[in-house]
Every structure is written in structure tokens, then in C-alpha cells.
């Protein structure tokens, strides 16, 4: 089966190029195994990976035009020639390794931790099963970046628009019964760019390997903003 991978070595290349490999595929093979085979042939080939089972979120790449995790993408699902490129819109450090700094900065900007006004209690803060259920579909995010790097608004304004991942995380804490910083969080999301650059393109929902729904989370934030303002 034919695979074409994006190659760029900052020390020797001035332009990126596509490199073709013929690789024998076997049953149950994932795209990550193919990338590992390419690395066996040429150890200068660089890509990130770790757990190999869609939990760590390291090996997000653009496969035949779609952002996916290589480790949970069966080769049998792909149409040859398979073209593997780095995430769109991110500066490439080498081959498939991109600089995700901006993405993490946006995640940090939503202050993804519980904030309390009241003094910290002696024991844990209890939640009802219903309150806990509100966090389902939010906490599962693994920060792989498939969503934000497939979002046109994030391509054009990665510094001013938070992107689907950070906004999903923002809602994860707004929806948490233990968090007490609702007003502060909503104020920080106001303005024409940070949240409202979302134009409901929904590429993020298509791209998410964990089947989460940032568009719905963004809608919930908008509704909450509306409720607070009337």
C-alpha cells in the first residue's frame, strides 16, 4: 500500500516535500504502525506518539485531509495513496511534529481548574449524580488538538479566538457545580473574538476522535451568557 508522508527537516530543507513509501499492511494495522515502519527505514523521520491507544492524544495528524489520531486509525479504513501531513495551520518543527504552543496557551487562558470563593472545605465537595452527569462529554477531552486545528476560525485567528478545545474546557468548568467563578469566566469569554468567532462550521465535531461536541458546549456558554444578561 502506498503512503506519502510530509517531510521537512529545518536543518537541511528550505521547503517541505512529500515522500512516498510502499508498505506491506497486515490485518488490524493502525496508521501509527505504518509511521513506525517508516521510522524503522529512516530514523530521521519525526512524529509524536506515546500510548498507542487513543488516550494520550500525541499522534494527531492530517490523514487524507482529515485530522485523526494515527494510533486509532485502522489502515483498512484508508484509501490509497494515504497522504499524511501535519496538523493544518500550526508551525512545523520537523516532519509531522508541530508547535502546539498557541493551542496550549488558549487552553490555559480559560483557567481550566476549579475556582472557589468560599474557603476550601475540610473534606471533598460532594456532587449529586445529576451534577456529575453534566460533565460527561466534557471531561473526556485529551487535548490532542484535532478539533482546533480543523477549525477555520482558529486557522485565521489562533491568537484571538480560543478555539473549540479551549471553549469545551471553559464549559466543562462553567457546568461544574463545584466551581464558583461563573461571572468571572463569562466576562473573560465576552468580546467579538474569544468565543464569538465560532461560526458553527462544526469541523471540530467531525474531527474529534473522542466524539465530543465543542459546538454544543459553545452553544451552552452562549445560552448562559444570554440568561445572565437578561
Amino acid at each position: 500500500m502506498e503512503f506519502r508522508v510530509w517531510r521537512f527537516n529545518p536543518e537541511s530543507d528550505s521547503e517541505p516535500r512529500m515522500e512516498t513509501h510502499q508498505i506491506e499492511v497486515s490485518r488490524g494495522m493502525m496508521l501509527r504502525d505504518v509511521l513506525l515502519e517508516i521510522k524503522r527505514r529512516d530514523e530521521s523521520f519525526a512524529f509524536r506518539h506515546s500510548c498507542g491507544e487513543g488516550v494520550c492524544g500525541s499522534d494527531g495528524v492530517n490523514v487524507n485531509g482529515r485530522n485523526r489520531l494515527a494510533c486509532i486509525t485502522p489502515v483498512s479504513e484508508l484509501k490509497a495513496p494515504v497522504e499524511v501531513r501535519p496538523f493544518p495551520g500550526r508551525p512545523v518543527i520537523r516532519d509531522l511534529v508541530v508547535d502546539m504552543g498557541q493551542f496550549y496557551a488558549q487552553y490555559q487562558a480559560v483557567e481550566p481548574w476549579l475556582k472557589r470563593q468560599e474557603p476550601e472545605p475540610e473534606q471533598e465537595i460532594l456532587q449529586s449524580p445529576e451534577e456529575r452527569a453534566r460533565l460527561d462529554g466534557l471531561w473526556e477531552c485529551i487535548l490532542c488538538g484535532c478539533c482546533s486545528t480543523s477549525c477555520p476560525s482558529f486557522w485565521w485567528n489562533p491568537d484571538r479566538f480560543l478555539g473549540p478545545q479551549a471553549l469545551l474546557s471553559a464549559w466543562r468548568f462553567l457546568a461544574d457545580s463545584r466551581d464558583q467563578a461563573e461571572e468571572e469566566r463569562l466576562d473573560a469569554l465576552d468580546g467579538p473574538y474569544r468565543l464569538f468567532r465560532c461560526h458553527t462550521v462544526m469541523n471540530c465535531v467531525d474531527a474529534c476522535p473522542k466524539h465530543l461536541n465543542p459546538t454544543q458546549a459553545i452553544g451552552h456558554i452562549r445560552n448562559l451568557m444570554l440568561k445572565k444578561s437578561v
Binding site: 510530509w6 517541505p16 492530517n62 487524507n64 493544518p88 469541523n203 465535531v205
Partner: peptide
């Protein structure tokens, strides 16, 4: 010296736009 060249992949014709994205454009 470390090179600071950092190309960006953003060839729109090579990125598959899902149907909801096509509707949006």
C-alpha cells in the same frame, strides 16, 4: 545555529471539508 524556518501546512484543497463545512462556506 538552529534554523527558525517553520513552514505551515494550510493547503485548503488538500484539507477535506466535512459536509457541514461545505454548507457553511
Amino acid at each position: 545555529m538552529r534554523s527558525q524556518v517553520r513552514p505551515v501546512f494550510l493547503e485548503l484543497t488538500r484539507i477535506r471539508l466535512p459536509v457541514a463545512g461545505i454548507l457553511s462556506i
